[in-house]
Nucleic acid binder design. Structure first.
Length: 235
DNA sequence: GTACAGATTGAG
DNA sequence: TCAATCTGTACT
């Protein structure tokens, strides 16, 4: 199977395009569980086991500052918290919400343009064969923006991380597993979640998810058919 | 220093 | 539907 890390040019396009095309891409996160000890042999040497967490992105939301009132960068607002949102496309902007949940965002467009895509849900691949009640058990760990960050162990230390170069997190295409939903050219566009304070911007259909995917956080929206499915192919 | 909102979640 | 939870942010 071939894999390809998404290049810079994938991210530096219009945010709505990136938000739609991120559906079906794979988020890869090698994790080294805290110095994990295993009996390594007669001398008792310790062995470090690296685990690779992988999830297919199935739900996203676009935030297009500075015009978007729901964006942290509305009207060019810039603070210590959201400054990484201004980085060139392909970087991570991560922040803490409600005092306890990290929110993973991927910057888009060119440097200085505060636009990003919130990753809201993943279809986890790791552990697929080991967990019997796979869908019900794993679904609950990644079907929300706060939960998926907990699952792949992200925190403030990832703020500003470059997805095109990082060794601890990146996005990739896979040649052997094109998402059927995308091949069929079907995604759903819906209102974004939790931003009712944003007036007319709250009504924009800037949330995207794979139709009928069981890992999506909340299903509701308008099904849109892609007239140019070839543009949304994963590889 | 103090007040307060919030791109959520999980229980009911 | 509703409230727990707590950091960052803005303001005094």
């Amino acid at each position: 199977m071939e894999t390809r890390r998404l290049p810079r040019k994938f991210y530096t396009r219009p945010t709505l395009t990136v938000a739609r095309e991120l559906l079906g891409k794979y988020l890869v996160r090698p994790i080294r569980p805290r110095p994990f000890s295993e009996k390594g042999g007669a001398n008792g040497a310790k062995k470090i086991v690296t685990k690779k967490m992988i999830g297919k992105i199935v739900e996203t939301e676009a935030y297009i500052g500075p015009k978007d009132k729901a964006s942290h960068a509305y009207q060019w607002k810039i603070t210590p918290r959201n400054k990484t949102e201004y980085l060139e496309g392909g970087h991570i902007y991560i922040y803490l919400c409600y005092g306890m949940y990290w929110q993973l965002n991927i910057t888009t467009a060119k440097a200085g343009q505060p636009e990003c895509v919130l990753i809201r849900a993943l279809e986890p691949l790791n552990g697929q064969k080991r967990i019997k009640n796979y869908e019900l058990g794993i679904k609950k760990l990644t079907n929300g923006p706060g939960k998926l960050c907990r699952w792949i162990k992200l925190d403030k230390s990832f703020d500003g991380e470059d997805l095109t170069r990082s060794k601890r997190i990146w996005l990739e295409d896979r040649s052997d597993s094109l998402p059927a939903q995308i091949k069929k050219g079907r995604i759903v566009a819906a209102k974004r979640i939790g931003i009712d304070y944003a007036g007319k911007w709250a009504k924009k259909p800037w949330r995207f998810y794979l139709r009928d995917n069981p890992f999506v956080s909340r299903m509701a929206g308008l099904v849109i058919r892609n007239r140019h499915p070839q543009r949304w192919r994963v590889s």
